[in-house]
Simulated assay, not measured.
Amino acid sequence: MSITRYMKNFFRYKNLLFELVKKNIKLKYRRSYLGILWTLIEPLLTMMVLTLVFGTFFGNDDPQYPVYILCGRLLYTFFSSASKAGLKSISGNAAMIKKVYVPKYIYVLSSVISNFVTFLISLIVLVGVGAVLKVEPSFYIIQAIVPLLILFVFTLGLGMILATLNVFFRDIEYIWTVATMLVMYASAIFYQTERIINTGNGWVFNINPVYMCISNFRDAVLYAQPMNMHYCLTSAVVAVITLIFGAVLFYKEQDKFILYV
């Protein structure tokens, strides 16, 4: 019965959610001359720099290496930017929270969705680079949606946890900046995993759901092969647990937000 009530409440505020998503996207590019085009240019420039450094200088002669980088970079950028936006979503909307009643999870959800929309737009770059470098799409490309959905759920749950903690402990923002940098280096964005596994440090990938999503996305888009089901199931379970924990924590503490924001 309570689930039905929550669903009705969600659909009641669906228009507000849509407006908040639009607002977040507009604010992100408000002072940019390039606007939404920067969503396409930034990953392309980053890919070129990383390819030059880790490809040319370190002797990686794989002609499709730029696609390898781009797959990892795009997914990590979504995770990083969306989790940081979710972290600030409650404290950043303090004025509205104090004046108008809105289900507070709407702010976290809109922050993650707006970054996901931006991410989907940036996939245009991946399609273009893949076409230029002759990456042939296969039937397995359909499965790419699975790691993307898992990463979305995981990021949303994490965003709710971070948003809750940030209301009471503002240092969380700085701690999370360092944490996302660690996640980046543990997600094999610009290096091949074989060398790390051979050193006995492959366990890093087995505890990192972000890497698992990136790896399965690469399998679907770049390597035209089935997903690693162990990675798929493990990351899905972690994502669902994170979302449930985040939702419970958020719901339990949300009535106190107004006293601290």
Rank of each mutant, 00 (worst) to 15 (best):
G157Q: 12
N228V: 13
T155M: 03
T177D: 15
W176S: 00
V248E: 11
P226R: 06
D171E: 08
F152H: 10
D255K: 06
F168L: 11
V237I: 13
F190C: 02
A179T: 14
L158Y: 13
W203H: 02
T177C: 03
Y211Q: 11
N208R: 02
G159T: 03
E173Y: 13
T155P: 06
V248G: 10
L158I: 04
M212Q: 15
I196F: 11
Y223I: 03
I207L: 05
V210E: 07
V210P: 07
N206C: 02
L151C: 09
I244R: 10
A236N: 07
Y185M: 06
D219P: 00
N201K: 09
E194F: 06
M229A: 05
L249C: 03
W203L: 07
N206I: 02
I214T: 07
F169W: 14
S235N: 01
N228G: 00
V153M: 04
L151M: 06
Q254M: 12
R195A: 14
T242W: 12
T164W: 08
F169C: 00
E194Q: 13
N206V: 04
D171T: 14
I175F: 15
Y191K: 00
V167Y: 11
E194G: 15
L233N: 06
L149Y: 09
I196Y: 10
N198D: 15
N198M: 14
G200F: 13
Q254Y: 09
V204M: 14
E253I: 06
G202M: 02
